[in-house]
Amino acid sequence: MNRAKLILLQFAVGLGFLLIWHILTAYPIFAPTRQTQFFFSTPTDVLARVWKEFSSGEIWGHLWITLVETVLAFVFGACGGILFGFLFARRELLAAVFDPYIKAANALPRVVLAPIFALWFGLGIWSKVALGFTLVFFIVFFNVYQGVREVSPVVLANARMLGMNERQLLRHVYWPAALTWMFSSLHTSVGFALVGAVVGEYLGSSAGLGYKIHEAESVFDVTGVFAGMVILSIFVILIDALVTLVERRLLVWRPAPSTNGQG
């Protein structure tokens, strides 16, 4: 499929959705318009609100806060995950001993941690960073752990036959292998960093996108909630595009998905 056609179709889906939303809220089909507009707002109102938020400049500060939280949560979570992933993959005993605790910690719903973090780190950005960290850490940890453990034994044996010592093996074999796995989960982990930030803000803060949405919800301002969600979506798409760009640069050696490098 060519690119122009794809973009056209993607555009059509969005437009169709907005059109249905508009028709259902502008005309009394299932219920009086007063009612439907209270519960669902209208696309024009939401878009107008989004425009107002951006043009008045009020949203930029909130976006910045959320971005900072997301980036910090991702950086700390990824560093911790890489460090412990390597350590556990290279030290069998450590991995075996801590296995049940790691599983237990990972299975914990992070939302219950939010109030604790707010208590520990205050209502500023650090409690949100901590929440994002707990999400990102485990994704990166498990991927790096897997990546290091599943290095092709032939590639490893070959590198050892080339005379590489442990440090060189780490640099030329384990590290790139782990990085591949980490990047395959990059979209997920960046997404979770953002989730951590927004949920943290939602549950208690005085700034950020999550705070904006919560504020609108608490006064039944449906238009405000939807506007916040739209802004959040735009934000997510932009971050995701950035991640794709980074990924393409760093994983140039990987075969295109259609060919699996065998032949």
């Binding site: 590639v155 030329h172 790139p176 990987r254």
Partner: peptide, 9 residues
């Protein structure tokens, strides 16, 4: 088997 490091040229 293939023993080259796939991430290197």
């Amino acid at each position: 088997q293939d023993a080259l490091m796939p991430w290197k040229t």
